[in-house]
Write a protein that binds this DNA or RNA. Structure first.
Length: 191
DNA sequence: AGCGGGATTTTCT
DNA sequence: GAAAATCCCGCTT
């Protein structure tokens, strides 16, 4: 598998295309592979984005080269991770909201001893499962110990578009994408 | 199935 | 000093 070649595009377009891509995490000689099934896009013109008010020490990774990982700490307790998109100098990225395990389930289970889909069906849960924290913020996803690879490709009829979760600004924008038939999605649109 | 609160600390006003 | 791109538990319908 190879590294995605579309990360220089608009973050909303990238968010759709990241569905089906895979994270490969090296943890103490063991490999964990997960497939991305839910994403949200953020960029500088977006009032809900960390980058909306310009570059700060916290969000500076979003303004760097695409293909790096932006990890932020929130609610006093949780880490969430983004794939940085677009051109350097512009603050944009895609929040990874849910993944489904492909291999290395035993390692995930050890880090998150909960049942079923609860292991990775949310942005902070998957960071806990994959041992992602601030140490990996700014990491280049072309390299170990955390790589991003092309995986499977979903057809448009397998993908739902929806509003984002957990924000109070720009709440109506359709910037969230998820795989309709995945049990690991954090929140399904009502209907 | 849905609501409400507590945990806990970084970041910016 | 308040809010935060969340999660988990307990209680109510």
């Amino acid at each position: 598998m190879s590294f995605p070649d579309f990360l220089d595009q608009d973050s909303t377009s990238v968010a759709r295309q990241l569905l089906g891509c895979e994270f490969v995490r090296q943890l103490n000689r063991e490999e964990v592979r997960v497939r991305i099934v839910e994403t949200e896009s953020y960029d500088q013109a977006d009032a809900a984005s960390h980058s909306y008010k310009g570059q700060t020490p916290r969000n500076s990774v979003m303004f760097g080269p695409n293909g790096h990982l932006y990890v932020y700490f929130t609610y006093g307790m949780h880490y969430c991770c983004n794939v940085v998109t677009g051109q350097a100098g512009v603050g944009a990225g895609v929040l990874i909201r849910a993944v489904e395990p492909v291999s290395g389930q035993a390692v995930i289970q050890r880090r998150r001893p909960v049942a079923g889909v609860l292991v990775t069906n949310g942005p902070a849960k998957l960071c806990q499962a994959l041992d992602i924290d601030k140490r990996l913020s700014g990491h280049d996803l072309r390299q170990s110990p955390l790589r991003l690879e092309l995986g499977i490709r979903y057809r448009d009829d397998q993908v739902a578009t929806a509003t984002r979760v957990g924000i109070s600004l720009a709440v109506d924008e359709l910037r969230r994408f998820y795989v309709k038939d995945s049990a690991y999605v954090s929140k399904y649109a009502r209907g």
